[in-house]
């Protein structure tokens, strides 16, 4: 059984950046957003690595990465991502700042997926970050699945085990730190990934070269995506409170570190 795997993922500010929300003309934004170093959304990156791993094990499979984001920044980030695993890129040019409505993003992604030449829906696995592009609500992948008529949906996925008959077993995170194992009869399905089990692949210049032949044309062909937050009013935007206290301790046992962090959080 081979798959047509579409991974949905865009860029986010590098996770350790200090972000500063500001009021922009089109609603909330991040200060100096286009200057902030960006990376592929780590959740989506996990999904991409899982997709590539699955495709490698299922000859005849194909992997697309569909991104809605500012194409100048995407181009920059793709030079790093492209060295990791083979994929074909589909780009919709638009904001990816975290204040876009999940429904808008899902609609743009659906339009992009529908436009992929040669995509066979009976082999379609829609991958993405579990909580990506939705401010943690997990809405985007669900809505995307609904728009595309894909009703088999799994969220918080850490593992996918394909069987020879086309079915597959999915391990999902559920409430209370537990896991749920399900068996799905087969594609099409939506899988919103948590972290998966794969390490970040090493940079492979040959993979990069191979990807780049398709990435640059994809960036040049990028169409504008009609995404935003029209009709949405943000009452307030603020960052979670942060307390910083640095202490350097060498070779402390993990249990001690955990205990100290818990005490520190409790205050």
């Amino acid at each position: 059984m081979s798959y047509h795997i579409v991974v949905c993922g865009s860029i986010v500010p590098d996770p350790l950046q200090t972000l500063e929300p500001v009021a922009g003309p089109g609603g909330p934004a991040l200060k100096n957003e286009m200057m902030l170093p960006a990376v592929l959304d780590p959740w989506a990156a996990h999904a991409l690595y899982e997709a590539a791993n699955l495709a490698k094990a299922a000859p005849g499979s194909r992997v697309w990465l569909v991104s809605v984001g500012p194409k100048a920044k995407l181009q920059q980030v793709m030079m790093h991502v492209a060295q990791k695993v083979p994929f074909e890129l589909v780009v919709m040019d638009g904001p990816a700042g975290g204040f876009v409505e999940a429904a808008d993003t899902a609609a743009a992604l659906a339009q992009a997926v529908e436009g992929i030449a040669g995509l066979e829906k009976d082999r379609l696995l829609l991958f993405g970050g579990w909580s990506s592009a939705s401010r943690g609500t997990g809405a985007t992948m669900q809505i995307l699945g609904e728009l595309l008529g894909v009703t088999e949906q799994f969220q918080g996925v850490d593992e996918l085990r394909p069987a020879d008959d086309g079915s597959f077993e999915v391990k999902e995170r559920i409430e209370g730190g537990g896991y749920l194992r399900s068996r799905c009869a087969g594609a099409p399905a939506v899988l919103g990934w948590a972290t998966g089990n794969l390490p970040e692949p090493p940079n492979n210049p040959q993979v990069g070269m191979q990807n780049m032949r398709l990435i640059m044309p994809a960036l040049q062909k990028a169409r504008p995506a009609a995404v935003g937050a029209a009709g949405v009013a943000y009452k307030a935007v603020e960052l979670p409170g942060a307390r910083r206290q640095t202490r350097i301790v060498k070779d402390a046992p993990v249990d001690d570190i955990a205990r100290e962090i818990v005490e520190w959080i409790k205050g």
Binding site: Q76, M79, N203, P205, G208, M216
Partner: peptide
């Protein structure tokens, strides 16, 4: 500058390498 160079499609700048 890097964005402009990459945009020509005539050179590839590979970071992380």
């Amino acid at each position: 500058v890097g964005g402009q160079i990459m945009g020509t499609g005539l050179a590839q700048v590979w970071p992380g390498t």
